[in-house]
């Protein structure tokens, strides 16, 4: 009895592997659309970016979409190359380094410590489709700036951005979220520039 049972099971497993699915498309946020800012002088501080945090469902490479107010699903054949929070973190790091907002900007993986730490918490990163068939790419994130010496919060702000999609599919969602991410990075850079010029928290 045993050899036939083993053979049947093996046949079924092989049959399962023989299932064909369309190829998976992977997407990444692009920094090509980030415009350089003209900062007259870099703030004399070292900024270190803390490891990004996100809502549990966003710690994934799945590409989520929302239909209406409550329905959430993920694309079957499209996904991100990395978790959205990590992609946004890299994008902001690139922007801050390019624009020299601070004398030095350290990534979350650096062993060095900075004068300031920037923490982030991603609340939403999805492709939203409303009942009328229009869709938007939406991002909701909170950034918190902390003084390393005193461990006190210097400032904290929540940023939201949305951008319409050219097409109601994964490709269009990626383009819209790319635009929204650019907008978020610009807002955050301007906010950090303003904070670094304020004398209230400086010694």
């Amino acid at each position: 009895m045993r050899p036939p049972l083993f053979l049947v099971t093996l046949t079924l497993l092989i049959a399962g592997c023989s299932t064909q699915t369309p190829p998976m498309n992977e997407y990444i946020l692009s920094s090509a659309s980030l415009a350089p800012s003209f900062i007259e002088s870099a703030a004399p501080y070292t900024l270190k970016m803390a490891p990004p945090k996100a809502r549990p469902s966003l710690i994934s490479k799945l590409f989520y979409y929302r239909e209406g107010e409550n329905k959430i699903g993920s694309y079957l054949y499209s996904q991100w190359v990395d978790a959205p929070a990590a992609m946004l973190d890299r994008l902001l790091y690139t922007s801050l380094q390019q624009n020299r907002l601070f004398s030095t900007t350290l990534s979350s993986g650096s062993n060095a410590s900075g004068d300031l730490v920037l923490e982030s918490m991603l609340h939403d990163f999805s492709h939203r489709i409303d009942r009328s068939g229009h869709s938007m790419g939406e991002i909701d994130i909170t950034y918190t700036l902390i003084d390393t010496k005193t461990k006190k919060v210097i400032a904290s702000k929540r940023f939201t951005a949305s951008s319409p999609t050219p097409t109601v599919d994964a490709q269009g969602g990626v383009i819209a979220l790319d635009h929204a991410a650019t907008h978020i990075i610009e807002q955050c850079s301007a906010w950090l520039h303003l904070i670094s010029k304020e004398p209230s928290w400086k010694k």
Binding site: G73, L76, S78, I129, V168, D169, A170
Partner: peptide, 16 residues
């Protein structure tokens, strides 16, 4: 049963 036969049909996303 998907482990062996991949019988379920997941809901495709918009445009899929």
């Amino acid at each position: 049963s998907d482990l062996l036969f991949k019988t379920s049909k997941p809901t495709p996303g918009p445009g899929e």
